[in-house]
Design a binder for these strands. Structure first.
Ligand SMILES: [Mn+2]
Ligand SMILES: [Mn+2]
Ligand SMILES: [Zn+2]
Ligand SMILES: [Zn+2]
Lengths: 142, 142
DNA sequence: GCCTTAATTGAGACATCGTCTCAATTATAC
DNA sequence: GTATAATTGAGACGATGTCTCAATTAAGGC
């Protein structure tokens, strides 16, 4: 019996939590699932309107808040601008304080710490973010 | 000869970088140096006006941007609201995605990684931020 | 399939936050 | 002191995010 990894989408989570699956929400969810980068909230609105033209700004923000409250989404801030990230993605960045550019890396050291903190604070940890910040080569004028 | 640890203030950094030391800026710097928490930018404005009443909003944001560009200050986001932090402070938080409350911890694992990344990206690292996020006990209804 | 009903919606006013322009002020070097 | 360029506050402006409310609609019970 091959045990296939069950990929649970955002919409399954939403309805499992007792929220209605409406057309406006589906549009927002689709945009989030198809996004390959950390999207700006207004970019989510723009893209979702291509799927569901009448979509209101408030609905987008309401849906984003819903997903955040469920621990599925995470608002981050990269180089001054607000972005959205799936909680399960790793976020490891170097961010330049002068120009805002960011660079990604993959190393992850937080496994051990996570368990310890979860116990100490009675906290259900869903993800983490590690940022180093400083000045990039360009901004140091080198 | 006792080697006293020289505490260099923000204003010394500013003038060393060739910026003028004006009364409005001094007020902002004083607020930042006396702050015991991560301040909201608008809170900086309010407090600095107690020192220098005529202070304009733009001047505050301009000064904050200056300090950020020099790598002395770091805009962070805690539970949905923008905050300012001294770059040299450690920032290790658990943040609840539902209510926004945050908890601090002290453990720090990033020393080794820091050097490696600085080389790889030719980046001058000034500080870091480590956040775990998830759901606190209250928000899980326990 | 219909009905009922509470959840959800979009419009648009509103609030907050942050930026920009420009004429007036002022820190600094000489 | 003077010259000069940096810096300032006012206030318009733009962007982002929230709120209210009447209209719509998903979902469950029949
Ligand atoms: Mn990691
Ligand atoms: Mn650390
Ligand atoms: Zn840079
Ligand atoms: Zn919470």
């Amino acid at each position: 019996m091959s045990q296939l990894r069950q990929e649970i989408g955002l919409s399954e989570h939403l309805s499992a939590a007792g929220y209605r699956l409406t057309a406006p929400r589906r549009a927002v969810l689709q945009v989030l699932e198809e996004a390959r980068t950390h999207l700006h909230p207004e970019e989510v609105l723009k893209r979702a309107r291509l799927i569901y033209p009448g979509l209101g700004r408030a609905t987008v923000y309401r849906t984003l808040a819903l997903l955040t409250g469920l621990g599925l989404l995470r608002p981050i801030r990269l180089g001054g601008s607000p972005r959205l990230a799936r909680v399960t993605e790793g976020h490891h960045h170097l961010v330049c304080l002068a120009c805002g550019h960011s660079f990604s890396f993959e190393e992850c050291l937080e496994g051990e710490l996570e368990e310890e903190l979860a116990q100490r604070f009675n906290f259900k940890i869903k993800g983490h973010l590690l940022e180093f910040y400083g000045l990039c080569a360009d901004c140091r004028g080198e």
